[in-house]
Computed example of a mutant assay.
Amino acid sequence: MSSILEGELAELVTDALTDANVPRDIVVTRTLPGNPYDPDGGSGGTADYVGKGWVENYADADRDGALIGISDVRVIILTTTIAIAPSEADSVTVGGETYQVINAARDASGALYELQARR
């Protein structure tokens, strides 16, 4: 079931942040499955999905070294700007820095994806 907050609210959040020049280009890279019938075990390659968002640092108090590592960052992606829902199998590139997605979730409003990402 989708949230009553999806759609219009997500568009309003995207418009407001874009007007304030907050979002940057973000590329989510997904590894595609290979062909199981390929005798060489051929890889399916990768696909890039471009969206808009930003990177935030975790507070020092949140970095416990186990769940949130020293090099972890929070990557926020506006849901209306990307064609996929990012997952833990993806990597994400922002400003020339590439991170592995450790955890991916959609916020309650449906306007943002929040990724825990690690270098």
Results as ranks from 00 to 15, higher is better:
46 T>S: 11
31 T>R: 04
52 K>D: 00
59 A>F: 06
54 W>D: 05
61 A>S: 15
55 V>M: 14
70 I>Q: 14
74 R>M: 14
59 A>P: 02
55 V>G: 10
40 D>C: 03
45 G>P: 03
61 A>G: 06
29 T>G: 00
39 P>S: 08
66 A>R: 11
67 L>T: 12
72 D>I: 08
52 K>Q: 15
65 G>N: 04
42 G>N: 08
50 V>P: 01
33 P>A: 12
74 R>H: 08
42 G>C: 00
70 I>T: 15
65 G>H: 08
33 P>D: 14
43 S>D: 13
65 G>Y: 02
64 D>K: 09
60 D>L: 08
73 V>W: 04
51 G>D: 02
47 A>R: 13
65 G>I: 04
57 N>W: 04
31 T>Q: 13
61 A>R: 15
58 Y>L: 10
46 T>L: 00
55 V>C: 10
45 G>C: 08
35 N>T: 09
39 P>C: 10
73 V>Y: 04
66 A>Y: 10
53 G>V: 01
64 D>S: 05
34 G>R: 09
60 D>A: 14
47 A>C: 02
34 G>H: 05
74 R>K: 15
35 N>F: 01
46 T>P: 03
54 W>V: 09
47 A>M: 07
72 D>W: 00
52 K>F: 01
31 T>V: 14
30 R>E: 12
60 D>F: 00
35 N>V: 07
37 Y>G: 09
61 A>H: 12
55 V>A: 13
56 E>F: 02
64 D>E: 05
63 R>C: 11
52 K>M: 08
67 L>F: 10
58 Y>F: 15
61 A>L: 13
35 N>I: 09
45 G>T: 06
44 G>P: 05
65 G>V: 05
29 T>V: 14
33 P>E: 14
57 N>L: 11
48 D>E: 15
59 A>K: 13
69 G>H: 06
51 G>P: 00
48 D>Q: 15
33 P>S: 10
38 D>S: 13
53 G>Q: 12
36 P>K: 10
48 D>T: 11
